[in-house]
């Protein structure tokens, strides 16, 4: 399936709850509210054979935390991105870990680096962040490497 076909399918199924943008025949960006994320992911995985969650991106934008789930389809050049904007500072989103095992680690990583709380995630321990940084969110705006190192008594740089 090409990007615009998937986009039309999503529009039919979700109506005004999705906002579809076709960037190119192989890149599709879909805006969707956080509550609809699991349903949209289920729709993609059941309508596109070989569809898998490739990865997710968390990004601290000016108006909120952007949470982008990138879905790839085996055997095709298509990448579908579900984009959600989460409100700061709490940033809560439903977890996709129940839909697909691929979401497990990447959601833990985003939780570590950006502090997004994934509701319903089976395992909320740290994955990539060191213990010394347990209270820090290094990918949030305003995180300052030099100030952080000074606070924990590290010498910054070489």
């Amino acid at each position: 399936m090409e990007a615009h076909e998937v986009g039309n399918g999503l529009r039919e199924a979700f109506g005004s709850r999705v906002e579809v943008a076709v960037a190119s025949p192989k890149r599709l960006y879909v805006r969707v509210a956080a509550v609809d994320l699991p349903e949209a992911a289920r729709w993609l995985r059941s309508h596109l054979p070989g569809c898998r969650l490739a990865t997710s991106t968390g990004i601290d934008l000016r108006d909120g935390i952007g949470l982008f789930h990138h879905f790839a389809v085996n055997g095709q050049s298509l990448v579908i991105t579900l984009k959600t904007l989460l409100e700061k500072p709490a940033a809560r989103a439903p977890s996709l870990a129940r839909e697909t095992a691929a979401a497990d680690w990447i959601e833990r990583e985003i939780h570590d680096l950006l502090g997004v709380a994934f509701e319903g995630h089976p395992d909320e321990r740290r994955l990539v962040k060191a213990e010394a940084m347990a209270d820090e969110l290094p990918l949030r705006r305003g995180f300052d490497v030099a100030r952080f190192k000074e606070r924990i008594g590290e010498r910054p740089g070489f």
């Binding site: 290094p138 952080f148 910054p156 070489f158």
Partner: peptide
Amino acid sequence: CSMGAYRDAYSVAGPADR
């Protein structure tokens, strides 16, 4: 020896000798 490309990274504690 000197942290190389990772000198300014937040999660690096220092070069091994230090």
